[in-house]
Nucleic acid binder design. Structure first.
Lengths: 213, 213
DNA sequence: TACCATACATACGTGCATGTATGTACTAAT
DNA sequence: ATTAGTACATACATGCACGTATGTATGGTA
């Protein structure tokens, strides 16, 4: 593991073990993400996940402790990608309203892949339960809510967002409407971005035609 | 069954058979609706449904052919209630925008009961499958989409809704955002109505402060 | 009262998906 | 080349939930 040959990126000698492991893990994660997005946790059947990735359940149970562990890994994986592709770019904006709208558009684009509904589906499935998977999705959701609520408060202080219901309630409506709209618009590639932004703007009570890009 | 005693509404003699049947059917339907809303179809366990209604699975299988039949009955039941409490009242409005906003507010109020997520949950669970339950939810959803699309077209002709993406895409975003927002706002009773209307108004591209009530 | 039908409960059989245990090919180091 | 360890496949065991079959009590009718 610490030898030179184990660390080399085989360009193309035969694949090394860690490389092989990483490849199959990626394939399994992606397949599981699609599956979770389509069927949810309970209806997800691991044999199908493995088959779609080109393996059998043996590979799955070699890389992941159990179904729950797999789901948690998928959630973490999706969340990391979301942060990189949506969360962090949006954070560049200085204006709270601009950041919120950037989040909306970015999320719409992000969800054009079939990974879209992973979080929404799991959150719905485990709402009110005390399952580890449910707790994790809830944690991620709560992080988003807090971020939006902060931005809403900031925007209200700056005067760019009119007063209204408590920031947390607005944040809940904002993210809920965003997810719902994006899921309903799956496949309507040109319009999803604009309509997601419009929905968010509406919840915020601002004029959606004000912000370009 | 056709005798006088079978048709009398027992006020309070002992309950008649048809009455008894109707009572237990109602209890089972309501319990199943809550269950479907919480857990979805696959995760719904019939023994729990029966127990929460005060019966056993025997009663369930006496009234419904199987799990699928039960789910379809729940969907029909929820849809009828929705039509009566939300759909028809909103249809009284003459202005398309007013009707759309009435739908939003009405749906928010309707979903304060825990039946809220039945349609959304089932639609997500069976999206892209060819299950009878999925087809039925899809049919109801499509009905809503068509209704909204017609209203959007009417509103655009009347000038009360600005031009934008195709009416169907806007309708998808509208209903998606509405469902998402309402679900996310579950329990936030005073604000759900207003925020649902705001989300819808935003998708339509209109000023949400224009319409009172 | 005697009899039948209906509303339900209990008991049983079955399938499917998960998790585990075992077996096999491939890699890597001595 | 031999041997150890890793990546996977195959085979087996368990459990849970569905559906069905049977039993029991209550309502309806003659």
């Amino acid at each position: 593991m610490s030898s030179a040959s184990a660390q080399r990126l085989s360009v193309h000698s035969r694949p090394t073990q860690t490389e092989r492991r990483a490849r199959s893990r990626s394939a399994l994660l992606e397949s599981a993400a699609r599956g979770l997005s389509r069927y949810g946790y309970g209806n997800l059947v691991l044999e199908e996940v493995a088959r779609e990735a080109g393996y059998t359940r043996g590979a799955l149970y070699h890389q992941f402790k159990d179904k729950e562990d797999l789901a948690l890994a998928v959630i973490e994986w999706v969340n990391e990608n979301w942060m990189r592709e949506v969360g962090e770019p949006a954070a560049q904006r200085t204006d709270p309203v601009a950041e919120l709208l950037a989040l909306a558009r970015g999320h719409a684009v992000f969800c054009r892949r079939d990974i879209a509904r992973v979080v929404m589906a799991l959150r719905l499935e485990f709402a009110g339960q005390d399952h580890p998977v449910g707790r994790e999705t809830e944690r991620i959701w709560e992080t988003g809510i807090k971020r939006c609520a902060r931005l809403i408060n900031a925007g209200r202080k700056a005067g760019s967002i009119p007063p209204g219901p408590p920031a947390r309630a607005v944040a809940l409506a904002l993210l809920g409407a965003l997810e719902g709209a994006v899921i309903a618009l799956a496949g309507h590639t040109p319009h999803d971005e604009l309509l997601a932004a419009c929905a968010v703007a509406g919840v915020l009570g601002i004029d959606s035609h004000a912000e370009p890009l």
